[in-house]
């Protein structure tokens, strides 16, 4: 068939219409997908203040932050020593203990196993604390040490440290 100048014009119109349609459909889908992300009021529940004056050495408390349990533990001297003595090259997720705390005796962790999200045991005195004397996740057998670092089991990462600050000696603000 001979080259018809109308064909070029038609091709251009077809291509631009299809492109516009595709971009338009994608733009239309976006608000629906975005609506499934956390809503503003969910995001607003971002901070929690905790009074830590009543926690004795060797005790832990669990508070709720963004729907998740946060462990606050006043560590004993031996626990701090254990955490510091570890050669970080032996760790699956290498981190120094000093990088995980603001004050040596206070350990603040998100108490959610980094494997599949269970809450590890070890908060109560009667709980099993695992082979490294920290926390033990009963779901799939992950062991955490006294700095909340993963030492054994399927979890890939250390228990995360949430953003927090000391408002004064007896109050922590999480978030």
């Amino acid at each position: 068939m001979a080259e018809n100048p109308d064909n070029k014009r038609r091709d251009f119109l077809q291509l631009s219409t299809i492109t516009l349609g595709a971009v338009g459909s994608a733009a239309f889908i976006w608000p629906f997908l975005k609506s499934m992300n956390p809503a503003e009021d969910t995001l607003a529940l971002g901070t929690t203040e905790v009074d830590i004056s009543s926690i004795e050495e060797g005790q832990s408390i669990t508070v709720k932050w963004r729907g998740k349990p946060v462990f606050i533990r006043k560590r004993t001297e031996t626990e701090i020593e254990e955490a510091k003595a570890v050669n970080i090259l032996d760790l699956k997720d290498p981190e120094q203990d000093v990088d995980r705390v603001k004050k040596e005796e206070w350990l603040v962790l998100v108490g959610v196993c980094t494997h599949l999200g269970c809450v590890p045991l070890g908060q109560k005195l009667t709980d099993t604390k695992g082979e490294y004397n920290g926390w033990y996740c009963p779901c799939h057998g992950s062991h955490y040490d006294t700095s909340g670092r993963i030492r054994k089991g399927p979890a890939p990462e250390n228990l995360p440290v949430p953003p927090y600050s000391f408002l004064n000696d007896t109050t922590i603000k999480i978030g």
Binding site: L33, M36, N37, P38, A39, T42, R66, G67, K68, V112
Partner: peptide
């Protein structure tokens, strides 16, 4: 995960959807 749950953990948004 957060997008699927509509929250940082399984919560009311998750149950609704």
């Amino acid at each position: 995960k957060t997008w699927l749950l509509g929250d940082y953990t399984v919560g009311n948004a998750t149950l609704n959807r």
